[in-house]
Design a binder for these strands. Structure first.
Length: 423
RNA sequence: GGAGAGAUGGCAGAGUGGUCGAUUGCGGCGGUCUUGAAAACCGUUGACUGUUAAAGGUCCGGGGGUUCGAAUCCCUCUCUCUCCGCCA
């Protein structure tokens, strides 16, 4: 959520930046400003009358105590008019505040100045490519066939238990999952992230804090009986740990990581591009989150991107880094890097991580502040990234590392899997 | 699922109609003392809004009501805790 004071002071710039994000409802900006004007005016009138009423009430109290009942009655008679007006202004005020809030949550975050213009994934900027595309044997298979051939994943069993998009991992397939999770967590810990094990169901306030609610509830599974949502990413519970918190300056940066399953409804997706592990309703992911000083957040974003790239390098996967264009970015993000690995058998790039700086967009919703050098409270910046999401990593690992004799496990994983070959 | 209790400042915990944004303790910060530290003592210490700065306004779980005046009385919702039951 953008800060109203910022919108007021930087109207032109806000409109310009929203255009980069391809945001059309620019009239909302002026609507917000005019609603805020009305809000301020009403607040001001209410404050003045309240001040009068307060002092009258005090006087009455004083007079009563001194036994001057008649004088007190005299003042009492004058208070009736205020009462009605205070009530009316109060109602107006909360009405205006509500309307303002409703408009405000519709505005996406402003993109950073380095964000390229553009509408579709084609307009994303390739920042770098790393690693060689592996040469596969002539009879190379896509991962879903490899998974069946080596008995690693059973998609049909998942359908029986739950439905499409909920695979069952078996044997070495299951072990590989566990190994990847442990490897990612160990790497995150080495990089300074403190692990959290988290609730997988969150309440409405948490959904609002990170920007999933309102408006994107269709992407989450909802447990209506208890009014809770299954998390689409660990970002939600981790970042919300700091909701309504004022951190000490020296507590920054906060660095947390966590492994969770993630649940996404992905309504309406179907077809070949979602086959196998390419897109699931439930998948495993290790997430990294940082809460940092506003001066440091872009430095931090680069550092987080480097961390994710380090993981891909250690796994020996060819990858590229994209700077997302305005049209392809998330609602809450100011700058996002996507990391994609090359899936050799499918001959396509698969997104395995997304690292974003939200600046104050989330912290404003979360009321996540820190005490700055002047001792005043200030909104902190929040960032997060996948480090990493498992299914597409598994897909590329299987495809890229297939040989005549089976699938080779990257050396760094062997201590975690206990085997170096799937055959 | 049944019964009961409760929700107040970073924490603990007073406050049952007026001078209460709120006693006190702990914690935090600053100081005195000390070679240094601890102890002791003194001072200070909520958030939001508003303003050049002030003044002023709002906030004692959320919403509504009574009253000139509500942390305090009434209604309602939500949440938490304890005991019993069930259970990993």
């Amino acid at each position: 959520m953008l800060q109203v004071s910022y919108i007021r002071d930087n109207r032109e710039q806000v409109l310009e930046r929203l255009a980069v994000k391809n945001f059309k409802q620019t009239e909302l900006v002026d609507k917000v400003i005019s609603l805020d004007d009305q809000r301020r005016q009403t607040q001001n009138r209410l404050d003045n009358i309240s001040a009068e009423a307060n002092s009258a009430a005090k006087q009455i109290g004083e007079l009563m105590r001194n036994g001057k009942k008649e004088e007190a009655e005299g003042i009492k008679a004058k208070t009736g008019a205020w009462k009605e007006e205070i009530k009316q202004l109060g109602e107006q005020l909360s009405q205006l505040e509500q309307e303002l809030q409703q408009k405000l949550v519709l505005l996406p975050n402003l993109p950073h100045s380095s964000v390229p213009k553009g509408l579709t994934p084609e307009d994303n900027e390739v920042v770098l490519e790393h690693g060689e595309t592996p040469a596969l044997p002539a009879n190379a298979l896509p991962h879903w066939e490899l998974a069946a051939k080596y008995n690693l994943i059973d998609f049909e069993l998942g359908v029986k238990i739950t439905g499409a998009g909920f695979p069952v991992y078996k044997g070495k397939g299951a072990k590989l999952q566990r190994a990847l999770i442990n490897f990612f967590l160990a790497e995150a810990e080495k990089a300074g992230y403190d692990e959290r094990a988290l609730p997988l169901l969150v309440n409405e306030a948490s959904g609002f804090g990170t920007g999933q609610l309102p408006d994107k509830e269709g992407q989450m599974y909802y447990v209506g009986l208890d009014n809770l949502y299954l998390i689409p990413t660990a970002e939600v519970p981790i970042t919300n740990l700091y909701r309504d918190v004022i951190l000490k300056g020296e507590e920054l940066p906060v660095m947390n990581c966590g492994y969770t399953p993630c649940f996404r409804r992905e309504a309406g997706s179907y077809g070949a591009h979602v086959r196998g592990l390419n897109r699931l309703h439930q998948f495993d992911k290790v997430e990294i989150v940082q809460v940092v000083h506003p001066d440091k957040s872009y430095e931090t974003l680069e550092e987080m991107s480097k961390h994710v790239q380090g993981l891909l390098q250690k796994l020996g996967l060819p990858y590229r880094v994209l700077r997302l264009c305005g049209g392809d970015m998330g609602f809450a993000s100011a700058l996002t890097y996507d990391m994609e690995t090359w899936s050799a058998a499918q001959q396509r790039w698969l997104e395995v991580s997304s690292v974003s700086n939200f600046e104050t967009f989330q912290s404003n919703r979360l009321k996540l502040r820190f005490r700055n050098a002047e001792g005043k409270t200030q909104l902190a910046h929040t960032l997060n990234g996948s480090a990493l999401a498992l299914p597409r990593i598994v897909a590329t690992l299987l495809e890229n590392n297939q040989t005549e004799n089976g699938i080779k496990i990257p050396e760094v994983l062997v201590p975690y899997t206990g085997f170096d070959m799937i055959s």
